[in-house]
Design a protein around this nucleic acid. Structure first.
Lengths: 142, 142
DNA sequence: CCTGATCACTTAGTTGGCTAAATAATAACG
DNA sequence: CGTTATTATTTAGCCAACTAAGTGATCAGG
């Protein structure tokens, strides 16, 4: 990647993200997932029966995005949606046995990606990078 | 944003990028652009008559992505494509007067976004962040 | 009660991004 | 010179993400 003095940080951020997403996509295709779906699986692994609204908040995406992703993931048997018994508006999401199996594979892939991403960075540098990224996130969401 | 001890850097990176993209998208819509198109306009401002292959390399995306983006941008009169006179395979891309006008507005918006993104970071921290992101990019593309 | 506001989600339609495969033109090689 | 390989771009089809608008269920006020 070329770097001019006036290269914006925003520009660099976009490029790093594209590269990261491409790597993630390549590895996820091995287990039949698409980029983005891993977030839902990991979230469901933490806690079953999450509502779609909670997924919207956690993934920082809009409701239609979650709706369509879940429809596709349900059609391939990764997750299951059941209506809440108390409030007919909310639908809760659960991992199927197949979804759980895929999540196990996902876990090791994600760990490998993490190691690849942070290669050559000391623990201190990683902590520093994390702190700076948190600052950026705060700047961009407040 | 919540932070558990074991939060992966990759996860944080994805969240920061989503937030950044959302901010960019919101501002670009003011001037009738979609997220991603700003990269093409800025590149064309540097140099007119760039080939699509060069855009593919510079933007780190695949050829079909550039093709479709240019088709849309051409249909709204932002850019113009002309066949190269020596090699009939290559098409060169130029800014239209309208595209140039939009680029001027884009420039100030982009600058504002940059300031917003890096708010609260010292020059040293910005340089450090840049260095760390370059390292990540290198890790993810080699 | 019942009517309007709010909330959870879905549908329709757009774009950016991808892969796989097709087209067309140039380059390379026997 | 003709045949093959390579290169530049496009087409078709998929998914993630968005906005705008719609449907249903719940909640709140009169």
């Amino acid at each position: 990647m070329e770097h001019k003095q006036d290269d914006a940080l925003g520009y660099l951020l976009v490029q790093v993200c594209k590269a990261h997403r491409n790597r993630v996509q390549a590895r996820l295709s091995e287990i039949g997932l698409y980029a983005g779906q891993e977030m839902i699986l990991m979230r469901l692994c933490q806690e079953q029966g999450v509502t779609q609204s909670q997924l919207v908040d956690d993934l920082c995406v809009e409701p239609p995005t979650v709706t369509k992703m879940l429809q596709r993931m349900e059609s391939v048997g990764l997750v299951e949606r059941r209506q809440d018994s108390e409030d007919a508006r909310v639908s809760r999401v659960y991992l199927t046995p197949h979804g759980e199996a895929v999540e196990v594979e996902l876990r090791s892939i994600w760990q490998e990606l993490e190691m690849q991403t942070t290669a050559g960075l000391s623990d201190m540098e990683q902590a520093l990078l994390r702190r700076l990224l948190v600052q950026l996130y705060s700047n961009l969401t407040d």
